[in-house]
Amino acid sequence: MANRAAPALTLREGDRGELERLHRSTAARAGEVLRARIVLAAADGEANERIAQRLETSKATVLKWRGRYQAKGLAGLSDEARSGRPRTVDHARIVSVTLAPPRKYGVTHWSTRLLARHLGIGNRTVATAWREYGVQPWRAETFKFSTDRELVAKVTDVVGLHLAPPENAIVLCVDEKSQIQALDRTAPMLPMQPGLPERRTHDYKRHGTSTLFAALEIATGKVTGACKPRHRHQEFLAFLKQVARAYPDTGDGTELHLVMDNYAAHKKAEVRDWLAANPRIQVHFTPTSGSWLNLVEVWFGIIERQAIHRGSFGSVKDLNAKIRAFINGWNDRCHPFVWTKTADEILKNANRQPTLNTGH
């Protein structure tokens, strides 16, 4: 009778969702996750011995947290105040020192051991203070400010095209992915097998580079692409003419609206003159440092992950052929690219960032 099912533990209203969140969490402490798993298993009527065996803990631990939840609900799963001498280390001071650069030691940021030695305390104490205040000195992220004076107008224009394109118009996001390397491994790749991932040598041969020009139709996800050896204005103008042929003027007044960034080749006199001679094609520039508003960048990430990064190419010709094959396959299974955030939400978020120090 050792595995006889215990009476199912009755959960309080609304607690299951919080327990399941803890059960799936990768950020919660291991003890909190274990307690949530115990209570959920008990609520499903699983025997105490079986819970202990499956979760690799003791039956006493299972009974303890069953009882604590039964008595106090979720509050019973929290650690109770420990007996003994109150904490004498000031966590706020530890964090205050953490936020100051450790110039004395010639490093860019504190580690728990370096700060502990500096303050004359244990490194576990430093780690506890960092966890309490959410401080993570080992992490660093990037950000970019747009200094475009027409930021608001350009964001509103481009996002408006994504969310509500004009009637009788096709919106295309246009850009180039340059310097794509034709890399060939020094030995054939070993294919994936049960229990083994695909394997390849760490070294490779370079066979040159290619530039992929692409126009993404956001309403369908269809891509018009071309591979060229360089990405000057001459190649860009040739690609624009290819796009115009792919979407011919049928006399019904359909306009082409092109979203592109501020790369110099996009604004050359020859390109401007050709656009002026083709008034059905209208250009919308993203703000400076705002190329992420161009949805073709998302598609470039897809082709990089699915066709280029793990590819092996014996020549630039081989690379271009495989890129074209991916585009053909993509267009057979393409899907619309849906933009969800409004211009106001984007600008509100941008305004929350600290302002630049211009020196004035």
Rank of each mutant, 00 (worst) to 15 (best):
S210H: 08
L190G: 07
I170F: 07
V159W: 10
S178E: 07
F213C: 04
F213W: 03
H233T: 11
Q193N: 14
V223Q: 09
F143Y: 13
T220Y: 05
L240A: 03
V171E: 11
K241V: 12
D184E: 15
K222H: 15
A164I: 01
D184I: 04
T209M: 02
A219L: 03
I218A: 14
I170R: 13
P194H: 14
A238G: 03
A219F: 08
C227W: 01
G195S: 00
A238E: 06
F239H: 14
E167G: 15
V155C: 10
A215M: 01
F143W: 14
D148V: 05
V171H: 08
T220S: 09
G221S: 01
V152Q: 08
V171P: 12
K154P: 01
L161S: 08
E167L: 10
S146C: 06
G208D: 08
L240D: 07
A164H: 08
A215P: 10
A187W: 00
D203L: 15
S210M: 05
A182D: 00
T201H: 09
L151A: 02
G195H: 02
A219R: 07
E217W: 04
T224R: 12
K144D: 11
P229R: 00
D157R: 13
S178D: 02
Q181K: 08
A164R: 08
A214W: 11
V158F: 04
V223H: 10
R206K: 14
A214Q: 14
F143P: 13
F143V: 12
Y204D: 11
T220H: 02
G225M: 05
I218C: 09
V152A: 07
E217V: 14
Y204N: 09
L190P: 09
D157Y: 10
L216M: 13
T156M: 12
L237P: 09
T147P: 07
L240P: 05
G221M: 04
A215Y: 06
Q193L: 13
D175W: 00
K228V: 01
H207Y: 10
K177G: 05
F239M: 11
K177Y: 07
A182L: 05
A215H: 06
P188Q: 07
P166R: 02
G225N: 11
D157K: 15
L151M: 05
P194Y: 11
I218W: 04
A164S: 05
Y204M: 03
E235K: 00
P165H: 02
H231Q: 11
H233I: 05
M192P: 14
S210W: 02
T147A: 11
K222P: 10
V152N: 04
G221A: 05
P194K: 15
L240I: 06
K154I: 01
K205H: 15
P191M: 01
T201L: 07
D148F: 01
M192Y: 13
A219C: 06
